[in-house]
Amino acid sequence: MSAIGNPMIRMPSSAKKGEIVEVRSLIMNPMTTGLQKNKAGKIIPAHFIQTVEVTFGAKPLSHLDWSTAVSANPYLAFKMRAEDSGILEMTWKDNQGGVWSAKASLKVA
């Protein structure tokens, strides 16, 4: 519960042109809803990632909007078509000003 951030991306380091590759990612975040109380009966404030931006070669690839229904320490997998070599970058932003980024590179043969 104390760890936060530490984003990770796993994807193949190389692919054939036109191949569809899977990108898997993980980040530490409590994703609290703001509806639960702690043991002392006080509301635990909402603290959750709201947006995830994904770019490849600095061009927008995808973006996500998340609610508090996404589980703690969110895992996310998605796909992309490998057309050119480049860097995939993901940026997570939470409602308390937290911003984290991670990168992974892909070589297209």
Partner: peptide, 28 residues
């Protein structure tokens, strides 16, 4: 998720470069 306190859980916005409208995540 029909009866969660706020039913909309997530929105995934794709581009054609994704190659496939696919995702995996975990929800409450």
């Amino acid at each position: 998720i029909d009866h969660n306190p706020t039913p909309l859980a997530s929105e995934f916005h794709f581009t054609p470069a994704n190659g496939r409208a696919y995702f995996q995540e975990r929800v409450k």
